[in-house]
């Protein structure tokens, strides 16, 4: 068994201080509009978010960036950093992922010595790149020798489990309901990872109108506990 799996698992911990606890990716808009109010309505939203937005953005980027790292094709890594940023039309979501990406980068730089991370940092400083958690996470997964599909799966898990914890606080849901949702989504994440493996580069950035509109609307939601 690859002991490095635990090392990558460290980055999935929702206590990892990247700021994921302050982003809802539009969920808060639906909570305010009372469209999401319990475990069932939340699971429905999360299902659509995972399968209609996350797999085509972060998920597919992780998959393709891992392949690029195997070939030492760094131009493709930087290309997806930009694509991830500009495909996100809602400002809060775009700025949020950028901030989280930078924070995760600073954190893992303290833990690992990987030249491509140093280059990433330099590019962000020179405003040639933006910063994104999916890219940082994938660089570490690849560095640790964790297989590609496991890296993608763990990344998706980290995003979804943070969102579930945020929903527990915001809706609110009971802790047990939160854990049930995490359990329910384990098989969904495996399905999502399998889907990503069958996507082509041309599928990148597909989004779903309602999700995106709610993410835009969040900017002007009255009571906010999240930054997106």
């Amino acid at each position: 068994m690859n002991p490095n799996i635990l090392a990558l698992f460290q980055l999935c911990d929702s206590n990892l201080p990247t700021g994921a606890f302050s982003h809802s990716y539009g969920l808060e808009t639906y909570i305010q509009e009372d469209q999401v109010h319990d475990q069932a309505t939340f699971a429905k939203w999360l299902h659509v978010y995972l399968h209609e937005q996350l797999i085509y953005s972060d998920g597919l980027a992780s998959h393709l960036v891992y392949e690029a790292l195997e070939k030492e094709d760094f131009q493709t890594v930087w290309k997806f950093d930009r694509m991830l940023t500009v495909q996100s039309l809602p400002r809060e979501t775009r700025d949020g992922t950028q901030r989280m990406g930078e924070r995760m980068l600073s954190l893992v730089e303290a833990l690992y010595d990987v030249p491509v991370l140093t280059e990433y940092r330099k590019r962000i400083k020179e405003k040639k790149s933006f910063g994104h958690s999916a890219i940082v996470f994938t660089i570490i997964g690849h560095h640790l020798g964790v297989p590609k599909s496991t890296t993608t799966l763990y990344y998706l898990y980290s995003v979804i489990s943070s969102l579930i914890q945020n929903a527990v606080r915001a809706i609110p849901l009971g802790q047990t309901a939160g854990q049930k949702t995490i359990q329910q989504f384990q098989s969904e994440l495996v399905t999502a990872t399998a889907k990503i493996e069958n996507l082509a580069e041309e599928d990148f950035g597909i989004t779903s109108p309602g999700l995106e509109l709610a993410q835009m609307k969040h900017e002007r939601v009255n009571i906010r506990i999240f930054m997106s």
């Binding site: 999401v36 209609e52 990148f204 989004t207 109108p209």
Partner: peptide, 23 residues
């Protein structure tokens, strides 16, 4: 430099168009 990438896919047979997140 790419500054906007907007990609919409509609596949009514596989998507629940009326659902939360879609239309």
């Amino acid at each position: 430099e790419l500054v906007v990438y907007d990609h919409i896919k509609v596949n009514p047979a596989e998507q629940d168009m009326q659902s939360i997140g879609f239309m």
